[in-house]
Design a protein around this nucleic acid. Structure first.
Length: 287
DNA sequence: CCCCAGTCCTGCGGGC
DNA sequence: TGCCCGCAGGACTGGG
């Protein structure tokens, strides 16, 4: 489930397309409903074909391919989307093909089992509006502790739910939210407005540590195998998970508690009641 | 404005 | 063996 570490791994994996020229764009036929591609293919092709790729960036959970025209192609993988340079696992779920010339890489593929993702070609103005500060908070790897606190502290929402709000802070998804809160020693149901000053510092540090570590391991590939990097290889951070999908298992950190699963905002949350007590008198969970 | 519930999408695994 | 159902969670929408 691509969150910031997986999307950053995708970005790095396809960075070699910079300097190549897009020579064709195709949407393969499939028995599945086509994914959302904007604008319509005729205009997409007209504006993309012939353009030089000048940048590959990440904005939150999206990969952004910059063209010399100023337009950008924004890939939004959501749950199961992959950006592939290798051959896709099958043709049925191949959603978009960018043919490239003039560089070492011949094609960039967007492949997704569930067609929840989307690809959008945006003008500079569209890009600034749709991925701008009105719709997306600061990147989770760049936000300061102070800004994190300022953006969340007034809310009565549970801290786990607030961390998933991309307008507050961009890049954190369901998996890493649980891991981050465990490292910070914060109960997922703690309301934001009851998080103490010292805990905001811990939370901010945990966000950076967990996400950076996950990037080093090139993301998490769960047992369902949904996430793969652009070479179609699995990540390694799943072996470092302390709580996610570990309900009922002993906490590897404290050795006492068992990991509990609960549902918040219709999504699974995992935590250790011993490391993450609701009453905050505890010290930070340390590594 | 804040926040929650519903929606989309397909594959998989459990129950029977 | 086969069918049905729930679940997985990105972002978005509608409404209280």
């Amino acid at each position: 489930m691509p969150e910031l570490p997986e999307v950053e791994t995708m970005r790095r994996g396809i960075a070699g397309i910079v300097g190549s020229r897009i020579c064709d764009v195709r949407r393969p036929r499939s028995r599945f409903r086509p994914i959302k591609i904007t604008p319509r293919m005729s205009e997409f092709r007209r504006r993309a074909v012939g353009m030089l790729v000048i940048a590959v960036d990440r904005v939150g959970k999206r990969v952004v391919v910059g063209l010399d025209s100023g337009d950008r192609i924004v890939f939004e993988p959501r749950m199961t989307g992959r950006l592939l340079l290798a051959e896709p696992p099958d043709r049925q779920h191949l959603r978009l093909v960018l043919k490239l010339s003039g560089g070492p890489i011949r094609q960039l593929l967007f492949w997704s089992v569930r067609g929840l993702g989307a690809v959008a070609l945006m003008s500079p103005r569209q890009f600034a509006r749709r991925l701008g500060p009105e719709n997306l908070g600061p990147d989770a790897l760049e936000i300061s502790a102070r800004e994190l606190r300022e953006r969340l502290a007034a809310s009565r929402r549970a801290i786990k739910v607030a961390l998933l709000d991309q307008r507050a802070v961009a890049g954190i998804g369901n998996l890493y939210a649980s891991e981050i809160l465990h490292r910070a020693g914060l109960h997922p149901e703690l309301p934001c407005n009851r998080v103490r000053p010292a805990a905001w510092i811990r939370l901010h540090a945990s966000i950076g540590e967990v996400l950076q570590e996950a990037i080093l391991f090139e993301g998490s590939t769960l047992s369902d195998g949904t996430y793969r990097n652009p070479q179609n290889e699995a990540g390694g951070y799943q072996d470092c998970h302390r709580v996610y999908q570990r309900a009922g298992k002993q906490c590897v950190q404290c050795g006492r508690g068992r990991i509990v699963r609960l549902v918040q905002a219709q999504r699974s949350t995992f935590f250790c009641p011993s490391c993450q007590p609701l009453r905050l008198r505890t010290r930070a969970a340390t590594t």
